[in-house]
């Protein structure tokens, strides 16, 4: 166990956490304000990744392999898709109970996965790391891929942007007001329907950013949205539903704990118990670590780490 390995794994954890934050932010916003659970959020992340990878691999107006263009198509595509889905299906569910929302978005997941399989085939679709970012950056004597640094940077920038948007702008004020009392905001003459749609678009846009970022480091394939969606749900429950701040800290904690746990827990266990037992128990415990974290947090604070204060 060396200090370099630890730092590299910390950075990996941070990068994973940032991706989780991009997904969690959109989900928790929609949750907090519209009281709506969108399980299809992971599917929009998947579609974002597909759109971006498609734009990267195919010539559009004669340009091929441009990361910027991939970003525009990926993020733009997922925003448009999100808004279309919201207007077509989801808005009718805002007044329904959570069970209906869970079921309908569960159905959407099935549909999206098959759409992706139909258009792009069942095998994974690759997107290469853009050439300019394919090198690595030397930080205190440790080489770390530049692209992963960029993910961390983009994630932190988005977090800052979200903070400014919500705390310092008029839209942000309306979002906060909507979170505590949507009916009253509507009564004051704000078009709450439009606000909801915009918010939903913002959320799916962030999912698109996550999909774009994840494209080159993970394989783009049908069903890629579900595993990360469930971890995202862990993040927002741990952080406190509806809280962007909670989502941010919980995402980083979950990302780091998961990554570090997977690498170091098996090593740590071998020093403590018998080798055969450690080899069996190590990976098992490591993959359960974040769920245990969530259970512990909820056992003491059922509202999550940063509960939203209503009223």
């Amino acid at each position: 166990m060396s200090i370099e390995l630890l730092i590299v794994q910390l950075l990996n954890g941070l990068q994973y956490g940032v991706l989780l934050f991009l997904l969690a932010a959109g989900l928790t916003l929609v949750f907090g304000i519209m009281n709506f659970v969108n399980l299809a959020h992971g599917s929009l992340y998947m579609m974002g990744a597909y759109f971006a990878a498609w734009a990267y691999n195919n010539p559009i107006f004669g340009i091929q392999g441009s990361f910027i263009l991939a970003a525009i198509v990926g993020i733009g595509g997922s925003i448009i898709l999100g808004i279309v889905v919201e207007r077509l299906v989801l808005f009718t569910l805002y007044e329904r109970d959570h069970l209906d929302q869970v079921l309908a978005t569960f159905g959407l997941i099935l549909v999206f996965n098959e759409v992706a399989r139909f258009i792009w085939g069942p095998s994974s679709y690759y997107m290469e790391v853009p050439e300019k970012l394919s090198g690595s950056i030397n930080l205190l004597g440790i080489d770390y891929p530049a692209y992963r640094f960029m993910i961390i940077g983009v994630g932190l920038l988005v977090a800052l942007g979200m903070f400014l948007l919500i705390q310092k702008t008029r839209i942000g004020m309306l979002i906060r007001a909507g979170a505590s009392n949507a009916t009253m905001v509507g009564a004051l003459g704000i078009n709450i329907k439009l606000l909801n749609t915009l918010l939903f678009g913002l959320g799916t846009g962030l999912a698109g950013v996550a999909g774009l970022m994840a494209g080159p480091i993970l394989s783009v394939q049908p069903g890629m949205g579900e595993p990360i969606l469930i971890v995202t749900l862990v993040v927002i429950v741990t952080g406190g539903i509806g809280s962007i701040r909670g989502a941010f800290f919980a995402a980083l904690i979950v990302g780091v704990i998961d990554t570090i746990g997977r690498v170091f827990l098996p090593i740590l266990l071998t020093t403590m118990v018998e080798k055969s037992l450690a080899q069996a128990a190590g990976p098992a415990t490591a993959s359960m670590l974040i769920y245990l974290l969530m259970a512990v947090v909820l056992a003491f604070k059922p509202q999550g780490l940063f509960p939203v204060k209503h009223g």
């Binding site: 959570h98 990976p283 909820l298």
Partner: peptide, 25 residues
């Protein structure tokens, strides 16, 4: 101890935990 939305998600998370547990066996 939780209810509503949190209950849905936390039950999902526990099932997922069990899933990963057997996968790692």
């Amino acid at each position: 101890r939780t209810s509503g939305m949190t209950f849905i998600m936390i039950t999902l998370a526990f099932a997922q935990m069990g899933y990963f547990f057997v996968v790692s066996l």
